[in-house]
């Protein structure tokens, strides 16, 4: 099983970037690279090749599901789990997001002191199936 160390987060909201990066690095001990947009991630992610990608759903210009499709076309990321991060937590909205083929969902708001453990648990749950 691949151990979770490197995480890429794609989110346009600075407040989430700062908080999640601090939570995942300082509290949970992961290495986090942040991209502000789907376009930036698609252009630069090959320089990182993470163990996990956290992808915001609602972003200007290119929304999460569209970025997800493009990320899945990158061969080096074939086996990298992708989790959507979303504040749209209704049952129907979650079903629609899971139907895209994304590996799991992380809800916003989140508890930064528990975020790392929550993500690791979800990661360990999906990594064996890839």
């Amino acid at each position: 099983m691949s151990e979770l160390k490197k995480i890429v987060m794609i989110d346009d909201e600075k407040a989430i970037q700062i908080l999640a990066k601090m939570a995942l690095e300082k509290v949970a001990g992961f290495e986090v690279t942040v991209f502000d947009s789907g376009a930036q991630a698609l252009s630069e992610i090959k320089n990182v090749i993470p163990d996990l990608i956290l992808l915001d759903v609602i972003m200007p210009e290119m929304e999460g599901p569209e970025v997800f499709v493009e990320l899945r076309k990158i061969e080096e990321l074939n086996k990298v789990p992708i989790f959507f991060m979303t504040g749209k937590n209704g049952e129907d909205e979650i079903k629609l997001l899971l139907a895209t083929g994304v590996n799991d969902i992380v809800n916003k708001p989140f508890d930064p002191l528990k975020l790392g453990a929550q993500i690791k648990e979800k990661y360990d749950g999906v990594i064996g199936d890839l």
Partner: peptide, 9 residues
Amino acid sequence: HNLAGTGGS
């Protein structure tokens, strides 16, 4: 939307 996602966090 951003307030909803960040406030509680």
